[in-house]
Nucleic acid binder design. Structure first.
Lengths: 200, 200
DNA sequence: TGTACATCAGTGAACGCGCGTTCACTGATGTAC
DNA sequence: TGTACATCAGTGAACGCGCGTTCACTGATGTAC
């Protein structure tokens, strides 16, 4: 039986992952404007020059964090994309959308920062975002085929439904909802009510 | 006839207003994270210590800018709060909401920054925000009285309707809407469709 | 209408700070033989 | 199984930068008489 190391190893072992985790923690604590490479390194218990071996610069770290967040979000939506009709799939997606935003408010906000477009040089972020939109579009199309969702251009319907979920999620995590007596349960009622409007 | 002054006056005359205007311009150009006192002073054509006579510190300037933006937004909503029924008033409010956000995306974003709560020491920002919410709540109540809006707890209905408008506005100005072929006209269809769901 | 003087609203130099980034370095790890 | 050595992944000092804020100052304005 070996004694557990008390001194941290000189080589971290998995610093890249640790830095991403630390970055998420910084954002959760101080918001994205408090995210600095030095603070991330501090949290990971490493000198401030160490991240250079894993991320070329600050934008590179943010990019990786956004990609990771998109992947996590998309996985949750994919798991939620179930139901015996298109309308049920849409309802389930909408609820998952709001629930994930509520559970991960800072990561959620990160996904929609307009300044991200400035650092998405290869378009990989845009592609990751599109994967989730396709889920939504598919559910809408399925619902129109099985006649459980209202007619109309699928993109129009999908964007309106997305707006509903996004609005509830945003008002819920940014405060206005709760400041007016809106609980997460009220948010759930709101998204259900709004998505009911898409049923045929 | 006097020659127009070519040298700027030593005393600006209305520096406070000029600084607020410059701050709005900075935010429009670089986003709120690019807002610095020095840059604001630079735009206003004044030394970087000059703002001190008008704003105690940076938070003070941001606070003033937010208040000004809330007032402008509330005035627009108040003007839009017309219609022969509660349902029409709600529709008109929702459209005005999205239109103003589209016309003033950076100011709109500013109003909902979660970190604002940190600088709203006197609660004046919360009060300004509440004024607009009351408009919405009144329209919903009126619509329930005249039976043009669905039944339900007025706060529930109001928060759901707000979510719809907020979601459309946010997705429109932050990109996802346009990135998927959604024009401002599509946004208008989206908000109309969503608010139609509140008609009785 | 002039003059003296207080007050107001600017200037520009200076401060300390945390940031991103660079650099020479060093200890740990992996590999060839 | 050892050994030599390249490479990898850290350290810590240093840099230049823009920031918010402070300070002594100065020119413009307003007011009392």
């Amino acid at each position: 039986l070996r004694i557990v190391k008390e001194q941290p190893a000189y080589h971290h072992g998995n610093l890249r992952a640790a830095l991403l985790e630390a970055a998420a923690a910084v954002i959760a604590d101080t918001g994205v404007e408090g995210l600095t490479l030095r603070e991330v390194a501090r949290r990971a218990g490493v000198s401030h020059a160490a991240p250079k071996h894993h991320f070329a610069d600050k934008a590179d770290l943010v990019r990786a964090l956004v990609m990771e967040s998109f992947d996590a979000f998309a996985a949750v939506l994919r798991r939620a994309d179930r139901g015996s009709s298109g309308a049920e799939r849409l309802q389930s997606l909408g609820n998952a959308y709001v629930r994930w935003a509520f559970a991960n408010p800072d990561r959620f906000r990160l996904l929609f920062r307009p300044e991200l477009r400035g650092i998405d040089d290869t378009g990989e972020i845009a592609r990751a975002a599109d994967a989730s939109y396709q889920l939504l579009l598919d559910a809408v199309s399925a619902g129109q085929s099985d006649r459980t969702i209202i007619t109309g251009a699928p993109a129009d319907v999908a964007l309106a439904a997305w707006s509903a979920a996004h609005g509830v999620a945003t008002l819920l995590i940014d405060g206005p909802f709760r400041a007016r007596g809106g609980s997460p349960a009220a948010a759930r009622r709101a998204i259900d009510r709004l998505l009911d409007g898409f049923r045929r």
